[in-house]
Write a protein that binds this DNA or RNA. Sequence first.
DNA 1: ATGCCGGGCGAAGCCCGA
Length: 242
Amino acid sequence: MKIASFNVNSVKARLGNLVEWLKEARGEIEDLGYNVATHGQKTYNGVAILSKSPMEDIARGLPGDNADDQARYIEAVIPAGKTVLRVASIYLPNGNPVDSDKFEYKLHWMDRLIDHASKLLSYEEPLALAGDYNVIPSADDVHDPQAWANDALFRPETRAKFRELINLGLTDAFRACHREAHRYTFWDYQAGARAKDNGIRIDHLLLSPQAADRLKASDIDRNIRGREKPSDHVPIWAELDI
DNA sequence: ATGCCGGGCGAAGCCCGA
């Protein structure tokens, strides 16, 4: 099974781009019979899971704060042969500027994600937490670390929370397959960022041990950033032997 | 480093993203 994360930065503006990539990523046009689960809201935020197999136990919203109405988390179970793959699509808050309540919200959201991931890991099943984490895990994941030193995506508090999440026992699928530094999933639209490869790696696929055991390959489809009217993010994917 | 891009909303110009 191949799973992927792609922040398309607007469904309306990116549908053609998305469909084109899906066709290439998964073969024939007649295969484009995806089941869709969405969790969205007006103007801001929104996540979805597209699955060729029917989904079960769809859950919308990240537990832990009933007052949080931002659409940033959806989860589903995808039966696969003798096992299942549980998939979550996440859109972790940006958090800038760091002296605002947005940064507090980001850190609190990460605490809630840690709590929920801990619960999901207790099921001891294949699990993939996929999405736009808005976290640059290390200096190897950014073109110009100095420039991002005080940004919510790279602040020590943010990276510490991300390590806390990883240290529950999750595997960064891309890093498990690639050691080299400076492989990115996002390039700003402005200032010729892509031409200068001035990017950051902030979209991640985090796998439970049972999923990591089945990890065959993972990569970033960098070329998608060069298409007409691209998203500023590109797809990241992992192939699991499920 | 930011909002020089790009999108949503709504029909101009502001808000937001990273």
